[in-house]
C-alpha cells in the first residue's frame, strides 16, 4: 500500500485529520529544505507538499512565484531536491508529494522523472497544469510506479466533471477552496462545505482543500468537512523572511506549522 493511502486510512480509523504544509524546495536553500522535512513531521504534518521551482508558475500568486524565482536564481535543480528528500526519507513516516509543473516533467521525460522521484522517496505528485484530458499516460505511469497522483478540482468545475476527475485521482483529491491563484485570504468561501459534501457523494477518496488557507482557525473550519488542509503561501512567506538566516527558517516555520496543527483538534466551542 502506498504511504499516502496508509496515512489517510490510519487517520480515518482514528477520526483524525491531516495537515499538508507546502514548501518551495530550495528556498532559502536545499539544506534548509532537507532540515525542514523532519521538522514538519514533528510539528504535526501528515504529508509535506514540496514545490519544485519552475520559471513560469502560472497558477501561483506573488508569494510562491517570488519564492520559486529565488530558488532558481540560486541554481536549485530537481536533482538537488531529489537528493534532499533521499537524505531524510529513512527517518520520516510523513508522506512527501511533489507539486511540479508538467513542463519540467515533460522535458526530463515522464518515465525518468517518476523513477527519480520514487527513488528519492516521494510518495506522489500534483501536476498543477495537467488537466484530466492530458493526464492519462502520466497517471498510468505514476500508478505503475506505485505512487499517487492528485488532480485539482476548481469551483468552476461542474459536478459531472468533478466526478470524472475524482475517479482519476489516487491518494487524495485536491479541492481548490477558490478559483484563481494561490495566496492568503481573510476568509473561506461560504459554499466550500457544500462543495465538499457534493464531492463526498461521488467519491470515497480523501479530500484535501487548498488555496487561501492561512490560519489555524481556517484549518479548523476546513477540516470540519474535509480530510486535509493544505497551507502554502502563509508558510512560504515565513520561509522567505528568513533568507538572511536560513537556520532560523526551520524554527520560524516549525512554530507556525505547530500553530496550524492546533486546527487539527476540533474545538467544540467553535462548532
Amino acid at each position: 500500500m502506498n504511504r499516502i493511502d496508509r496515512i489517510f486510512r490510519d487517520l480515518r480509523a482514528q477520526g483524525g485529520k491531516a495537515l499538508l504544509p507546502f514548501l518551495t524546495a530550495g528556498d532559502p536553500d536545499v539544506t534548509t529544505t532537507a532540515a525542514l522535512l523532519p521538522a514538519m513531521q514533528q510539528a504535526g504534518a501528515a504529508i509535506c507538499e514540496l514545490g519544485i521551482p519552475f520559471s513560469d508558475p502560472i497558477a501561483d500568486g506573488p508569494v510562491i512565484q517570488e519564492s520559486m524565482h529565488f530558488a532558481l536564481t540560486r541554481g536549485v535543480r530537481p536533482a538537488d531536491i531529489f537528493q534532499a528528500v533521499a537524505s531524510q526519507r529513512a527517518a520520516l513516516s510523513m508522506g512527501v508529494v511533489a507539486m511540479v509543473s508538467f513542463s519540467i516533467v515533460h522535458r526530463m521525460g515522464v518515465g525518468s522523472f517518476i523513477q527519480q522521484a520514487r527513488a528519492a522517496g516521494f510518495d506522489g505528485f500534483i501536476f498543477p497544469d495537467l488537466p484530466l484530458e492530458e493526464s492519462h499516460d502520466v497517471r498510468a505511469q505514476v500508478a505503475q510506479a506505485g505512487l499517487t497522483c492528485s488532480l485539482l478540482i476548481s469551483p468552476s468545475t461542474p459536478l459531472a466533471r468533478a466526478e470524472q476527475i475524482a475517479r482519476a485521482c489516487t491518494g487524495f483529491i485536491y479541492l481548490m477552496a477558490r478559483a484563481g491563484l494561490t495566496g492568503e485570504r481573510a476568509s473561506l468561501p461560504v459554499d466550500l462545505t457544500d462543495r465538499i459534501a457534493r464531492l463526498r457523494q461521488v467519491s470515497d477518496l480523501p479530500i484535501a482543500v487548498g488555496f487561501g488557507i492561512s490560519t489555524p482557525q481556517q484549518v479548523r473550519q476546513v477540516l470540519q468537512a474535509a480530510d486535509a488542509a493544505i497551507v502554502g503561501s502563509a508558510i512560504v512567506r515565513r520561509l522567505t523572511s528568513c533568507r538572511q538566516q536560513p537556520a532560523q527558517a526551520v524554527s520560524e516555520v516549525t512554530s507556525f506549522v505547530q500553530q496550524l496543527a492546533d486546527g487539527l483538534v476540533q474545538d467544540t466551542a467553535h462548532k
Partner: peptide, 20 residues
Amino acid sequence: VRGYFGAFGGTYIPEALFAA
C-alpha cells in the same frame, strides 16, 4: 477534437482555466 496538430498542441492548463 483534442486540439492536436499532429503531436503538438493540446490543453495543458490549470483546472481553474478549464471552464473558460
